[in-house]
Amino acid sequence: MTALRWIVLVGMTGALVLFPALFEPVLRPFAPAGGPVIYDRATLAGLTASHLMLVMLAMVPSTLIALALAILVTRPAGAEFLPTARMLANIGQTFPPVAVLALSVPLLGFGTRPTVLALFLYGLLPIFENALAGLRGVPGSVLLSARAVGMTPRQMLVQVEMPLALPLILEGIRISVVIALSTATIGSTVAARSLGEVIIAGLTSNNPAFVIQGGVLTGCIAVLVYDVFGLLILAARRPAATARIRSRG
Protein backbone atom coordinates (compact mmCIF):
# COMPACT_ATOMS: atom_id res chain seq x y z
CA MET A 1 0.00 0.00 0.00
CA THR A 2 2.70 2.41 1.06
CA ALA A 3 4.98 1.21 -1.71
CA LEU A 4 2.17 1.74 -4.21
CA ARG A 5 1.67 5.28 -2.95
CA TRP A 6 5.37 6.07 -3.39
CA ILE A 7 5.43 4.60 -6.88
CA VAL A 8 2.33 6.53 -7.97
CA LEU A 9 3.56 9.81 -6.48
CA VAL A 10 7.11 9.61 -7.79
CA GLY A 11 5.91 8.29 -11.15
CA MET A 12 3.27 10.99 -11.61
CA THR A 13 5.56 13.78 -10.53
CA GLY A 14 8.43 12.59 -12.65
CA ALA A 15 6.29 12.04 -15.73
CA LEU A 16 4.55 15.42 -15.40
CA VAL A 17 7.83 17.25 -14.95
CA LEU A 18 9.94 15.44 -17.52
CA PHE A 19 7.50 14.15 -20.16
CA PRO A 20 4.45 16.43 -20.02
CA ALA A 21 3.55 15.52 -23.61
CA LEU A 22 2.65 12.00 -22.45
CA PHE A 23 -0.49 13.41 -20.88
CA GLU A 24 -1.80 15.06 -24.02
CA PRO A 25 -4.35 12.30 -24.86
CA VAL A 26 -5.75 12.34 -21.32
CA LEU A 27 -5.99 16.12 -21.09
CA ARG A 28 -7.22 16.75 -24.64
CA PRO A 29 -10.93 16.52 -23.70
CA PHE A 30 -10.52 19.25 -21.08
CA ALA A 31 -8.80 21.77 -23.31
CA PRO A 32 -10.88 24.25 -25.30
CA ALA A 33 -11.35 23.23 -28.93
CA GLY A 34 -8.24 24.05 -30.87
CA GLY A 35 -6.51 25.47 -27.80
CA PRO A 36 -3.21 24.27 -26.36
CA VAL A 37 -3.38 21.13 -24.21
CA ILE A 38 0.06 21.13 -22.63
CA TYR A 39 1.34 24.26 -20.93
CA ASP A 40 4.17 25.56 -23.06
CA ARG A 41 4.94 29.10 -21.92
CA ALA A 42 7.63 27.66 -19.65
CA THR A 43 8.90 24.14 -18.97
CA LEU A 44 7.25 22.43 -16.05
CA ALA A 45 10.70 21.30 -14.92
CA GLY A 46 11.89 24.88 -14.73
CA LEU A 47 8.78 26.01 -12.88
CA THR A 48 9.07 23.10 -10.46
CA ALA A 49 12.70 23.94 -9.74
CA SER A 50 11.83 27.59 -9.21
CA HIS A 51 8.88 26.66 -7.01
CA LEU A 52 11.02 24.45 -4.80
CA MET A 53 13.73 27.09 -4.70
CA LEU A 54 11.25 29.67 -3.38
CA VAL A 55 10.26 27.29 -0.62
CA MET A 56 13.88 26.48 0.24
CA LEU A 57 14.94 30.11 0.31
CA ALA A 58 12.20 30.85 2.80
CA MET A 59 12.24 27.70 4.88
CA VAL A 60 15.92 27.55 5.76
CA PRO A 61 16.02 30.93 7.54
CA SER A 62 12.53 30.36 8.87
CA THR A 63 13.59 27.12 10.52
CA LEU A 64 16.79 28.57 11.94
CA ILE A 65 15.13 31.64 13.41
CA ALA A 66 12.06 29.83 14.75
CA LEU A 67 14.28 27.22 16.39
CA ALA A 68 16.51 29.88 17.90
CA LEU A 69 13.46 31.67 19.32
CA ALA A 70 12.00 28.48 20.74
CA ILE A 71 15.33 27.64 22.36
CA LEU A 72 15.61 31.16 23.74
CA VAL A 73 12.23 31.20 25.46
CA THR A 74 12.79 27.76 26.98
CA ARG A 75 16.09 28.79 28.64
CA PRO A 76 15.95 30.33 32.12
CA ALA A 77 17.22 33.65 30.70
CA GLY A 78 14.37 33.87 28.21
CA ALA A 79 11.63 32.34 30.33
CA GLU A 80 9.98 35.69 30.98
CA PHE A 81 9.22 36.01 27.25
CA LEU A 82 7.46 32.65 27.08
CA PRO A 83 3.86 33.74 27.79
CA THR A 84 4.22 36.65 25.37
CA ALA A 85 5.75 34.46 22.68
CA ARG A 86 2.94 31.95 22.99
CA MET A 87 0.25 34.60 22.83
CA LEU A 88 1.92 36.19 19.80
CA ALA A 89 2.20 32.82 18.06
CA ASN A 90 -1.47 32.27 18.80
CA ILE A 91 -2.42 35.63 17.33
CA GLY A 92 -0.04 35.20 14.40
CA GLN A 93 -1.83 32.01 13.38
CA THR A 94 -4.91 34.04 12.56
CA PHE A 95 -3.05 35.85 9.74
CA PRO A 96 -3.85 34.02 6.51
CA PRO A 97 -0.83 33.26 4.30
CA VAL A 98 -2.46 35.19 1.45
CA ALA A 99 -2.64 38.29 3.66
CA VAL A 100 1.05 38.06 4.46
CA LEU A 101 1.81 37.58 0.77
CA ALA A 102 -0.37 40.50 -0.32
CA LEU A 103 1.11 42.85 2.26
CA SER A 104 4.67 41.92 1.24
CA VAL A 105 4.07 43.35 -2.23
CA PRO A 106 3.86 47.03 -1.22
CA LEU A 107 7.04 46.53 0.80
CA LEU A 108 9.13 44.67 -1.76
CA GLY A 109 7.41 45.03 -5.12
CA PHE A 110 6.49 42.11 -7.36
CA GLY A 111 8.36 38.88 -7.98
CA THR A 112 10.37 36.46 -5.91
CA ARG A 113 11.20 38.69 -2.96
CA PRO A 114 7.70 39.34 -1.53
CA THR A 115 6.86 35.66 -1.99
CA VAL A 116 9.95 34.51 -0.13
CA LEU A 117 9.28 37.06 2.61
CA ALA A 118 5.69 35.84 3.00
CA LEU A 119 6.73 32.18 3.05
CA PHE A 120 9.47 32.99 5.54
CA LEU A 121 7.19 34.93 7.90
CA TYR A 122 4.37 32.45 7.75
CA GLY A 123 6.76 29.54 8.16
CA LEU A 124 8.04 30.81 11.50
CA LEU A 125 4.91 30.10 13.49
CA PRO A 126 4.33 26.36 13.04
CA ILE A 127 8.02 25.63 13.53
CA PHE A 128 8.19 27.83 16.62
CA GLU A 129 5.05 26.33 18.13
CA ASN A 130 6.12 22.76 17.52
CA ALA A 131 9.68 23.32 18.68
CA LEU A 132 8.29 24.89 21.80
CA ALA A 133 5.98 21.94 22.40
CA GLY A 134 8.88 19.56 21.77
CA LEU A 135 11.31 21.31 24.07
CA ARG A 136 8.74 21.76 26.82
CA GLY A 137 7.63 18.17 26.42
CA VAL A 138 10.96 16.68 27.51
CA PRO A 139 10.07 14.79 30.71
CA GLY A 140 11.12 16.48 33.93
CA SER A 141 12.83 13.32 35.17
CA VAL A 142 15.03 13.25 32.06
CA LEU A 143 16.04 16.89 32.50
CA LEU A 144 16.75 16.28 36.17
CA SER A 145 18.90 13.28 35.28
CA ALA A 146 20.78 15.29 32.69
CA ARG A 147 21.64 17.91 35.28
CA ALA A 148 22.41 15.28 37.88
CA VAL A 149 24.95 13.44 35.71
CA GLY A 150 26.75 16.75 35.33
CA MET A 151 25.80 17.95 31.86
CA THR A 152 26.35 21.63 31.13
CA PRO A 153 23.27 23.55 29.91
CA ARG A 154 24.72 23.38 26.40
CA GLN A 155 25.26 19.61 26.58
CA MET A 156 21.71 19.21 27.87
CA LEU A 157 20.36 21.14 24.91
CA VAL A 158 22.42 19.42 22.24
CA GLN A 159 22.51 15.89 23.59
CA VAL A 160 19.14 15.55 25.29
CA GLU A 161 16.57 18.25 24.60
CA MET A 162 17.05 18.72 20.87
CA PRO A 163 17.13 15.00 19.99
CA LEU A 164 14.00 14.42 22.07
CA ALA A 165 12.22 17.42 20.54
CA LEU A 166 13.33 16.50 17.02
CA PRO A 167 10.21 14.60 15.92
CA LEU A 168 7.98 17.53 16.86
CA ILE A 169 10.38 20.04 15.33
CA LEU A 170 10.29 18.08 12.08
CA GLU A 171 6.51 17.98 12.35
CA GLY A 172 6.52 21.78 12.55
CA ILE A 173 8.85 22.09 9.57
CA ARG A 174 6.59 19.73 7.65
CA ILE A 175 3.52 21.89 8.35
CA SER A 176 5.43 25.02 7.34
CA VAL A 177 6.80 23.47 4.16
CA VAL A 178 3.39 22.22 3.07
CA ILE A 179 1.88 25.66 3.67
CA ALA A 180 4.84 27.23 1.86
CA LEU A 181 4.36 24.94 -1.15
CA SER A 182 0.74 26.06 -1.28
CA THR A 183 1.48 29.75 -0.75
CA ALA A 184 4.26 29.64 -3.37
CA THR A 185 1.55 28.60 -5.81
CA ILE A 186 -0.36 31.76 -5.01
CA GLY A 187 2.96 33.60 -5.34
CA SER A 188 2.53 33.49 -9.10
CA THR A 189 -0.23 36.11 -8.69
CA VAL A 190 2.55 38.48 -7.59
CA ALA A 191 4.77 37.36 -10.47
CA ALA A 192 6.95 34.87 -8.65
CA ARG A 193 7.90 31.95 -10.90
CA SER A 194 6.12 28.91 -9.54
CA LEU A 195 3.80 26.14 -10.61
CA GLY A 196 0.88 28.40 -9.71
CA GLU A 197 1.56 30.04 -13.08
CA VAL A 198 0.15 26.99 -14.86
CA ILE A 199 -3.03 26.94 -12.79
CA ILE A 200 -3.55 30.69 -13.00
CA ALA A 201 -2.98 30.55 -16.77
CA GLY A 202 -5.63 27.84 -16.95
CA LEU A 203 -8.07 29.88 -14.89
CA THR A 204 -7.58 33.11 -16.84
CA SER A 205 -7.67 31.47 -20.28
CA ASN A 206 -10.51 29.13 -19.35
CA ASN A 207 -8.41 26.06 -20.04
CA PRO A 208 -9.09 23.28 -17.51
CA ALA A 209 -6.30 21.19 -19.06
CA PHE A 210 -3.75 23.63 -17.65
CA VAL A 211 -5.51 23.71 -14.30
CA ILE A 212 -5.38 19.93 -14.07
CA GLN A 213 -1.71 19.73 -15.07
CA GLY A 214 -0.66 22.35 -12.58
CA GLY A 215 -3.02 21.12 -9.90
CA VAL A 216 -2.03 17.47 -10.11
CA LEU A 217 1.67 18.33 -10.21
CA THR A 218 1.58 20.69 -7.21
CA GLY A 219 -0.62 18.23 -5.35
CA CYS A 220 1.78 15.35 -6.05
CA ILE A 221 4.80 17.40 -5.02
CA ALA A 222 3.12 18.52 -1.80
CA VAL A 223 2.09 14.99 -0.88
CA LEU A 224 5.54 13.70 -1.82
CA VAL A 225 7.27 16.26 0.39
CA TYR A 226 4.78 15.49 3.15
CA ASP A 227 5.62 11.79 2.89
CA VAL A 228 9.37 12.40 2.88
CA PHE A 229 9.00 14.35 6.10
CA GLY A 230 6.91 11.47 7.40
CA LEU A 231 9.88 9.17 6.91
CA LEU A 232 12.22 11.62 8.62
CA ILE A 233 9.85 11.96 11.56
CA LEU A 234 9.55 8.21 11.84
CA ALA A 235 13.33 7.92 11.84
CA ALA A 236 13.65 10.62 14.51
CA ARG A 237 10.94 9.10 16.67
CA ARG A 238 12.22 5.58 16.68
CA PRO A 239 15.94 5.54 17.37
CA ALA A 240 15.72 1.82 17.99
CA ALA A 241 14.28 1.09 14.57
CA THR A 242 16.76 3.26 12.68
CA ALA A 243 19.71 1.84 14.61
CA ARG A 244 18.69 -1.57 13.38
CA ILE A 245 18.34 -0.39 9.79
CA ARG A 246 21.76 1.23 9.93
CA SER A 247 23.51 -1.82 11.31
CA ARG A 248 21.86 -4.00 8.69
CA GLY A 249 22.75 -1.66 5.82
Binding site: V211, G219, V223
Partner: peptide, 21 residues
Protein backbone atom coordinates in the same frame (compact mmCIF):
# COMPACT_ATOMS: atom_id res chain seq x y z
CA UNK B 1 -8.19 13.47 4.75
CA UNK B 2 -4.53 14.32 5.42
CA UNK B 3 -3.80 13.83 1.74
CA UNK B 4 -6.56 16.30 0.86
CA UNK B 5 -5.23 18.83 3.38
CA UNK B 6 -1.80 18.59 1.82
CA UNK B 7 -2.97 19.63 -1.66
CA UNK B 8 -2.22 23.33 -2.25
CA UNK B 9 -5.33 25.47 -2.12
CA UNK B 10 -5.28 26.83 -5.67
CA UNK B 11 -4.75 23.33 -7.01
CA UNK B 12 -7.75 21.94 -5.17
CA UNK B 13 -9.94 24.95 -5.94
CA UNK B 14 -8.97 24.79 -9.60
CA UNK B 15 -9.33 21.06 -10.04
CA UNK B 16 -12.82 21.10 -8.50
CA UNK B 17 -13.91 23.35 -11.35
CA UNK B 18 -13.78 20.43 -13.76
CA UNK B 19 -16.22 18.03 -12.05
CA UNK B 20 -18.54 20.84 -10.99
CA UNK B 21 -18.65 22.20 -14.53
Amino acid sequence: LTLIQTIPSIALFGMLIVPLA
